[in-house]
Amino acid sequence: MAGTEHLTVERVGATLVLTLDRPEARNALSLPMLVGLHDGWMLADADDAIRSVVLTGAGGAFCSGMDLKALSGHGTDPGDPVRARLKADPDLHWKAMLRHHRPRKPVIAAVEGPCVAGGTEILQGTDIRIAGESATFGLFEVRRGLFPIGGSTVRLARQIPRTHALEMLLTGRPYPAAEAARIGLIGHVVPDGTALERALETAALINANGPLAVEAVKACVHDTAALSEADGLRLELERGRPIFDTADAKEGTRAFAEKRPAVYRRA
């Protein structure tokens, strides 16, 4: 499948696995990696046979943030096709980092090692998060006099308690996996080296469900997050009622009654 110099793409059943693949730099973000991520999200959206996405990193690391030198393009050929892609779509890097794009399929993060700065910012665009027990998290930008512009000043306090969000943003300190789980940044801590395995197991559970229902549920959770309860409940009915009229819904109830696995056809 398509990929780039620093981003590998593979299929495991109905799951698309995107691997940040620059282990010599602890998978720091580069231009080829951003283009590969963008294309991976677009592929997942376009291919109905893909029902979930797992995002992980190679070499025992998730992502150590942005490689500012690499992102500047210093020393690269101005005619490089990767730079041409970024010039053609100035928003591409934000879509790649899930700041300006929300995949319609569930995204599961499988984290080993460092997931800091830009890594923690990308993490906030994922839906389910699993980490090895030695993984570390944090937003280090203020330590360098920088601003975490990948969405963290908006998203983090909506995902974890405000006091923990501000502490993470303002101290720039690292968070071990156990603490990240305690404050709700991640959902599961597993033995080192098994995060990807656990993520694929979770993806398989999702893949067995009705895809129309899964995608509608994900969209509704995100789209109602900033609404009042009353407005959110109205939107839930708008999104949820049509699902009951689908052939997949009928197949699901029929399969339950017949004590067999359902065969969903996105219809």
Rank of each mutant, 00 (worst) to 15 (best):
I122V: 07
E112S: 11
R83F: 12
K87N: 09
H100I: 13
A70Y: 14
A110H: 13
K95Y: 04
P161I: 04
T136C: 13
D91Y: 14
K69D: 10
S152N: 06
G75R: 04
I108T: 09
T153N: 09
Q159H: 01
G125D: 03
H74W: 08
E133N: 15
F147S: 10
M97I: 10
P114G: 13
P114M: 07
A109M: 00
A178K: 14
A165I: 02
A109D: 00
R182K: 00
D127P: 10
G132E: 10
V142R: 15
T76V: 15
L166Y: 00
Q124Y: 02
V82R: 03
A84W: 11
G132Q: 09
T153F: 13
G118F: 12
G150A: 04
T171V: 15
H74M: 01
W94T: 08
G113T: 13
C115P: 10
A96N: 00
R182F: 03
I108E: 02
I160H: 00
S152Y: 03
A177W: 02
R162A: 11
P161D: 00
E167A: 08
F140I: 02
L166E: 02
A135R: 05
P90G: 02
L169E: 04
S134N: 15
K87Q: 13
D80L: 01
R158D: 07
E141N: 14
E133K: 15
R144S: 10
G60R: 14
V111Y: 06
P148R: 03
Q124V: 00
F140N: 07
R143W: 09
K69T: 12
T56N: 10
H101I: 13
T136Y: 05
P81S: 09
A117E: 06
G73N: 08
A135H: 12
F137W: 05
F140S: 10
D127M: 09
R129G: 07
L146V: 13
S72E: 03
L169F: 04
P78K: 07
T120F: 08
P103L: 04
G60E: 13
R158C: 07
G65T: 06
L166R: 11
R155I: 01
P106F: 01
A88R: 09
V54Y: 09
T120C: 05
T171F: 15
R143T: 08
A84P: 08
T56I: 11
Q124G: 01
D127L: 10
V53H: 08
A157H: 06
R83P: 11
H93Y: 12
S72L: 11
I149V: 02
E133G: 14
T126H: 05
E112L: 04
L98D: 05
L71N: 12
T120A: 00
L71C: 14
K105N: 12
G73H: 12
E179H: 11
H101G: 14
G138Q: 09
I130W: 10
T56W: 06
E121H: 01
P90Y: 00
E133L: 10
V111E: 04
A165D: 03
R85N: 11
C63L: 06
P81F: 08
G150R: 07
T126I: 01
P103F: 12
G172V: 14
A131M: 05
F62T: 02
C63W: 03
Y175R: 12
I130V: 08
V54E: 08
E141V: 04
K87R: 15
F140V: 03
D127Y: 06
P90W: 13
V82Q: 01
A109N: 04
T136F: 08
R158N: 07
W94P: 06
T163V: 13
T56R: 08
V111C: 04
G145F: 05
